[in-house]
Nucleic acid binder design. Sequence first.
DNA 1: TTTGAATACATAATAATACTATGTATAATT
DNA 2: AATTATACATAGTATTATTATGTATTCAAA
Lengths: 116, 116
Amino acid sequence: MYNCLMYSNELIKGTLKTIILKLLQDSGRMYGYEITQRVKSLTDDKINLTEGALYPTLHKLQAESLITSEQEIFNGRKRKYYSITETGQANATARAEEFISFTKTMFAIIKPQLTK
Amino acid sequence: MYNCLMYSNELIKGTLKTIILKLLQDSGRMYGYEITQRVKSLTDDKINLTEGALYPTLHKLQAESLITSEQEIFNGRKRKYYSITETGQANATARAEEFISFTKTMFAIIKPQLTK
DNA sequence: TTTGAATACATAATAATACTATGTATAATT
DNA sequence: AATTATACATAGTATTATTATGTATTCAAA
């Protein structure tokens, strides 16, 4: 869709990655289910991560060495805790800045009509 | 990716549709090439719509009755002018508002870490 | 004058990505 | 006892954008 010079072409599609990385950057380690609940409460129920979207993305982020994982048993149930790596930290910051920049650009397009 | 209650699941993927509809809402009628140039200048070269993304999307918007088209010859070259329909007007406004709302939601997630 | 850039539209093939649906399994609640 | 919540996972599907390619005309530069 976009062939951007400043924005990676994953900016939009990759919003989920940005969300996950930013949460991990903020909270230290988290497990999958915890992430869905945090997103739900942070966004006031507006974003409800599905498992079919979350887990494959977590696996992808780990494959890219942006996060690491360690499995534990908590209260009889398996939990897989994810932590952000150093590379992931830099990536998270870059993604967030890109998103903010993109937002400004989009506003340049949609704002004029809003005030009509 | 998102299973939103307030946001359509096309919010992100459909940013291009929002852009096109908003431009048509603002400018009356436009032809394809004109849209790419307008986007380019409005976004300071940051978003460069490719033809492979633009034209299929225009056809899709027309199939959804959000825009209409009329072909003309200008200076020996074919031009297909697109105009927004009444349904499209409402859709454009809704999409823009959705985008702004989504932006606020995203900021709730990424902002805390930015100030660190 | 002819070559290349800009204008103008279109589509097929590919890649990326998220969603739906489904599966497994345990703990807690009703 | 049944349902809900917790917890992870993946196959299949759909959507969507990108790349690549094709056609065709006008205009500017070499």
